[in-house]
């Protein structure tokens, strides 16, 4: 186990190094000069050059990269060009809101997607299955701002059950998380359905029936255990995806997450923030993946950690 974790850790570091190389290069492909943006239009050529020197942007690229990675290793993600604040501090301040929204979104995704997928698989080809699949398609394909605004209108404005926007209590969390959960639940229900249909074809399901299990008992005990495995991998992925923020939902609901931070940074070409968010998202993907890989063998004993 320890050996496994050590190896996974080493592999993760390599992956993340790769990510830093990519973000680093990307930042130079952007056709805008960050120094000009900091200095402003009216700055003299001399000022521009001195800022460039100050930021180390006049050094050869490999040198810049090594310095960049060296700073990362110390937890220094650089300073925002625009906000003149440490990127690490900015991301850190957004982290609680992002993690909370992530947890809420995954909760609703599973709450909606798993039962719907299981039920559709059990009623395969019948009306209930078709209905669920149509709903899930609608969930997946409706733009999030439409779903979000609709939920806001009905449950916050008309009914007044939830606050209109902001962040702070559990009530603030429900609607944004539900908005994400509706889209994600559509994906999960499809995945759960096809996974369950595949499992229900297996010989051991026939055995379970031959034992006298009811359809429900069989699906719950023998089906779910096996069918849930691809879903777990998807949850691992979701952790990474939500870490980079849910831009649309955050702006609809005024949710102070990483997504808004990243969006503003992109608009202002605030490269250190973009690089920082990308890196944090990559770390989250690696962690989510690791978590999924650690949970899987608990369910399927054939899979060993090696």
């Amino acid at each position: 186990m320890l050996r496994y974790l050590t190896r996974r850790f080493a592999a993760s570091v390599l992956i993340l190094l790769g990510v830093t190389a990519v973000t680093f290069c990307l930042s130079f492909l952007i056709p805008a000069d960050p120094v000009r943006m900091i200095a402003g239009r009216s700055a003299s050529a001399q000022t521009v050059e001195s800022i460039r020197h100050q930021l180390g942007l006049d050094q050869p690229l490999p040198v810049q990269y090594v310095r960049y990675v060296g700073r990362l290793a110390q937890g220094d993600l650089g300073r925002s060009y625009v906000q003149k604040t440490e990127v690490a501090t900015l991301i850190w301040s957004r982290l609680p809101a992002t993690l909370l929204l992530m947890a809420g979104a995954i909760f609703f995704e599973l709450l909606i997607g798993l039962p719907a997928g299981v039920y559709a698989a059990m009623r395969r080809g019948r009306t209930a299955d078709r209905g669920i699949m149509m709903l899930s398609f609608a969930g997946v394909s409706t733009p999030q701002f439409v779903v979000g605004l609709l939920l806001l209108y009905v449950f916050a404005y008309l009914l007044g059950w939830f606050p209109l926007s902001g962040y702070g209590t559990v009530w603030h969390l429900v609607l944004p998380a539900l908005t994400l959960g509706i889209a994600g639940g559509g994906w999960y229900s499809r995945m759960m359905r096809s996974s369950m249909i595949e499992v229900l074809r297996q010989d051991y399901i026939r055995t379970a029936r031959a034992k006298g299990l009811s359809e429900r008992g069989m699906v719950m005990v023998h089906g779910l255990r096996n069918a849930i495995l691809p879903v777990i991998a998807m949850i691992g992925l979701d952790i990474g995806i939500f870490m980079s923020g849910a831009v649309v939902v955050e702006s609809v609901f005024g949710w102070p997450g990483i997504g808004q931070l990243a969006w503003q940074a992109i608009q202002r070409i605030d490269i250190p923030i973009i690089m920082g968010v990308t890196l944090v998202a990559a770390i989250a993907i690696v962690i989510g993946n690791l978590l999924a890989d650690l949970v899987t063998p608990l369910i399927d004993p054939r899979i060993r950690l090696r």
Partner: peptide, 27 residues
């Protein structure tokens, strides 16, 4: 069907050709 479930596995047992796949791998 409910009465039939009481027969399966209790009054009539069944085994199959594929021992490798007839048991649930996760239990």
């Amino acid at each position: 069907e409910s009465a039939m479930r009481g027969v399966r596995g209790d009054r009539i047992g069944m085994i199959f050709q594929e021992p490798m796949t007839s048991l649930n791998p996760t239990l």
